[in-house]
Amino acid sequence: MNSDRLSEIENNLRAPALNVRKNALDELAEIPADIAVPILQKLAREENFALRRLAVMGLGNHRSEASFQALQQTIAQEADGNVIAEAANSIFEFGEPAIPILQQLFEISDNWLVRQTVISLLVETDRFDVLLTLAIAALKDETQTVREAGILALKKVLSSPLKDEALSVLTIMAQDSYWRNRWRAAIALHGTQDSQAKQLLSQLQRDEHWRVVAAALEGTLAEK
């Protein structure tokens, strides 16, 4: 590809129209990483957070060491939660090497979007140990939606050798004073054949809040 076309792509990445930006990003995905990554690294230094977010989206399209390092740098230095969350999505595409980076990101971040993003990504893996650790940590978060993401993540752990640990946490959540935590616990228990889990669902069917009861009943019906 000639330099004029590359310059045009760079300009289009900064265009006011979103569709023009997206088309430029898609075209850049087809260009070799040694050419595309420096363009995206330059874009990642823009003042506009939307452009920086676009840059980390693009870096996820190139599985190169330079791209991986650039995403790590963004995660370490970026201040905007939207950009960091997008960087987490992109670095997740690199597989197992990304897991410790995402775990550390969750542990040091106080941004609700970042923390929810990391948990949702790890649910897609078989790293049950990391997922359990972060799910328990999420229960202490100040943001309710992060706490709920942690409770729901325990559903994945129920299908692992760490099932008993997950059930212990869900037992506590099933007795929590806040109905939303009991509600999420009921949803997390859906589909498991464990006798303790069934007992918890039976208990939640008699809950004082109708949403909790409905979720527990749905979980029981799903087993039949």
Rank of each mutant, 00 (worst) to 15 (best):
91 I>F: 10
92 F>L: 14
92 F>Y: 14
93 E>T: 10
93 E>A: 11
93 E>K: 15
93 E>H: 09
95 G>I: 12
95 G>N: 09
97 P>Y: 02
98 A>E: 10
99 I>M: 09
99 I>G: 12
99 I>P: 05
99 I>D: 13
100 P>T: 12
101 I>D: 09
102 L>G: 12
102 L>I: 13
103 Q>L: 11
104 Q>G: 03
104 Q>V: 05
105 L>P: 03
106 F>V: 08
106 F>M: 03
107 E>M: 06
108 I>S: 14
108 I>W: 04
109 S>K: 07
109 S>W: 00
109 S>N: 02
112 W>V: 06
112 W>F: 07
113 L>I: 14
113 L>R: 14
114 V>W: 07
114 V>E: 11
115 R>C: 04
115 R>S: 05
116 Q>I: 14
116 Q>S: 15
117 T>C: 14
118 V>G: 14
118 V>Q: 14
118 V>T: 15
120 S>H: 13
121 L>W: 05
124 E>W: 03
124 E>Q: 14
128 F>G: 06
128 F>H: 15
129 D>F: 03
131 L>I: 15
131 L>C: 10
132 L>A: 13
133 T>G: 08
134 L>C: 12
134 L>N: 06
135 A>S: 15
136 I>V: 14
137 A>P: 05
138 A>D: 11
139 L>V: 09
140 K>R: 06
140 K>F: 01
142 E>S: 10
143 T>K: 14
145 T>V: 08
147 R>M: 15
148 E>S: 10
149 A>R: 11
149 A>M: 14
150 G>F: 00
150 G>M: 04
151 I>P: 00
153 A>L: 01
154 L>Y: 01
155 K>N: 10
155 K>P: 03
155 K>C: 00
155 K>F: 00
156 K>L: 04
157 V>I: 13
157 V>Y: 01
157 V>T: 13
159 S>D: 15
160 S>D: 05
160 S>L: 07
161 P>V: 09
161 P>W: 04
164 D>C: 05
164 D>I: 08
164 D>T: 11
166 A>I: 06
166 A>V: 08
166 A>R: 09
166 A>K: 08
167 L>H: 06
167 L>V: 09
167 L>W: 02
168 S>R: 13
168 S>P: 06
169 V>A: 11
169 V>L: 11
169 V>C: 04
169 V>D: 08
170 L>H: 00
170 L>D: 08
170 L>W: 02
172 I>N: 12
173 M>W: 09
173 M>P: 12
173 M>F: 01
174 A>L: 04
175 Q>W: 02
175 Q>T: 11
176 D>W: 00
176 D>Q: 09
176 D>A: 13
178 Y>V: 05
178 Y>M: 07
179 W>A: 06
179 W>R: 09
179 W>T: 05
180 R>H: 02
182 R>C: 00
185 A>Y: 00
185 A>D: 01
186 A>M: 00
187 I>V: 07
193 Q>G: 06
194 D>M: 09
194 D>Y: 01
194 D>I: 10
195 S>Q: 06
195 S>N: 05
195 S>D: 04
197 A>E: 06
197 A>R: 04
197 A>F: 00
198 K>Y: 00
198 K>P: 03
